[in-house]
């Protein structure tokens, strides 16, 4: 029983990162109706940011969030201006499809650039406290991963608060619900788009940092993370950041259970099968409130 419980604990810890990864994708998709399939590559780049800050400057990976998040915000603004700001001009159906294609091209380019700049090697940040383990009732809880989960929750909670209380947070929610009505209320919808996209990119950067410290990164992890985020978004639906986070935890647990039931190599397959079935069962209802 204990090995299974141990797997569940690890699954839950990883699930927190799924939730964080999905939150950014969900925010961008919910507000801009833009499906950025390069989200996983943005996570990958965030991870490299933290990795190099650690390798070259000796900056603690958790502290590097203070650098990576603002940098990712700026990167988000640039990406919006250069690419996705053009996509949002199209009517909604074309918009989703074009964003998928643009995101796809961006994903390829970013991945190739990362291979070129950082080589295809797998990397991870090994701090002095990397091996620290908390023992709870016979279960080993890696401290770094626990801290990552806590930070992910903190970030999601902060985002939730910002969307609930901040003036522009409300504007973002209003835009997500009905952009035309938002415009008629006096909200600069384009700016709400820009903010939501930049926030989504910042979340990707944060997620990448946490991935690089508790787990590992390489230029090719993007697709996998995009898929994880998509699975969570499909399962959790749009509209609630906290709901998305819980969706991430559920996916982490589900993977652990399926790894126990079908063997480790199949942990991904189960999530994808569920994803496909849910998607087909509710082909329109999912993303529509």
């Amino acid at each position: 029983m204990t090995p299974f419980l141990q797997q569940l604990v690890l699954g839950l810890l990883l699930g927190g990162l799924y939730g964080l990864a999905a939150a950014g994708l969900s925010l961008v998709f919910g507000v801009l109706k833009v499906l950025n399939v390069a989200h996983g590559q943005l996570i990958m780049l965030g991870g490299y940011g933290a990795f190099w800050l650690f390798a070259l400057r000796g900056l603690d990976p958790f502290a590097s969030l203070a650098v990576v998040i603002p940098a990712a915000l700026v990167a988000g603004v640039i990406l919006y201006w250069a690419l996705f700001g053009w996509v949002v001009r199209a009517p909604e159906e074309t918009r989703v499809k074009n964003s998928l294609l643009v995101g796809f091209g961006l994903a390829l380019a970013l991945e190739a650039a990362a291979v070129r700049l950082f080589t295809a090697d797998e990397r991870s940040i090994t701090t002095g406290y990397a091996g620290a383990v908390l023992s709870v009732g016979g279960l080993a809880v890696p401290v770094v991963r626990l801290a990552s989960l806590a930070l992910a929750l903190l970030l999601i909670g902060g985002l939730h608060l910002a969307l609930a209380r901040w003036r522009w947070g409300r504007a973002i929610r209003a835009t997500a619900e009905d952009w035309e009505a938002a415009l008629l209320t006096g909200i600069d919808v384009r700016r709400a788009y820009l903010l939501a996209f930049a926030l989504g990119t910042a979340l990707a950067g944060a997620a990448g940092t946490l991935v690089s410290v508790g787990y590992s990164i390489s230029p090719s992890i993007g697709l996998e993370w995009t898929l994880k985020a998509l699975v969570v978004v499909v399962l959790a639906g749009l509209g609630s950041m906290l709901g998305t986070f819980v969706g991430g935890l559920v996916l982490g647990l589900a993977e652990a259970v399926s790894a126990a039931a079908f063997g480790g190599p199949y942990r991904e397959v189960v999530g994808l099968v569920v994803f496909f079935v849910v998607l087909v069962a509710r082909p329109r209802g999912l993303f529509v409130r």
């Binding site: 390829l108 380019a109 650039a113 291979v115």
Partner: peptide, 16 residues
């Protein structure tokens, strides 16, 4: 793999 950088960018330009 450098071709993917070029083609990725070219592809985005073509879509837009």
């Amino acid at each position: 793999d450098f071709h993917l950088l070029i083609f990725g960018a070219l592809f985005v330009a073509i879509v837009l």
